[in-house]
């Protein structure tokens, strides 16, 4: 485990117990998920019981305790998106990536997840990839969205 990296994150956050969430966010950005050793290390350094750190980490959907792929694909299945046929969008993505929600593709490029409402229902159905919002998605658009992120031919 690269303790220096975590040490640096802790330092930047001033070893502040109250700042546990921002610290975990930084750890997650660093490693793409929250490794067990990292949580133990953070708990030890901040002198918080490990269980408390674990409770926080398991509570928020944005934290992942399992390794995640390079790109996070989130499909909204909230009410508005559901009405706008988000489920068929999800089906399409599942088919394209060959994984189910909560899973990673074998090459660790993509992770698929679902959420219940992103608070942008006017754009339903919504797909978010790495924080980029794609509103009014249709099954036809999926291919081009995913292509943008496929390794090697990223457009930007």
């Amino acid at each position: 485990m690269e303790t220096e990296k975590i040490e640096k994150i802790l330092e930047e956050n001033g070893y502040d117990r109250a700042g546990l969430i921002p610290i975990l966010q930084d750890v997650q950005t660093e490693f793409n998920y929250l490794p067990q050793e990292a949580l133990s290390y953070v708990a030890e350094k901040l002198e918080i019981p490990l269980i408390d750190v674990y409770c926080v980490a398991s509570f928020f959907k944005s934290f992942s305790l399992k390794p995640r792929g390079e790109h996070l694909v989130t499909v909204c299945l909230g009410t508005a998106c559901h009405v706008k046929r988000a489920s068929s969008v999800l089906d399409e993505i599942e088919k394209r990536l060959g994984i189910r929600p909560g899973e990673n593709t074998e090459d660790m490029q993509f992770t698929l997840e679902t959420v219940n409402c992103l608070g942008a229902c006017a754009l339903a159905p919504i797909v978010v990839v790495d924080g980029d919002y794609y509103g009014q998605t249709t099954t036809k658009k999926i291919d081009s969205i995913l292509k943008t992120y496929k390794r090697g031919d990223k457009k930007e």
Binding site: P49, D52, Y54, C55, S58, F59
Partner: peptide, 9 residues
């Protein structure tokens, strides 16, 4: 102890 807690939600 602080060994157990309410995990998840």
């Amino acid at each position: 102890g602080k060994a157990i807690g309410l995990v998840g939600r």
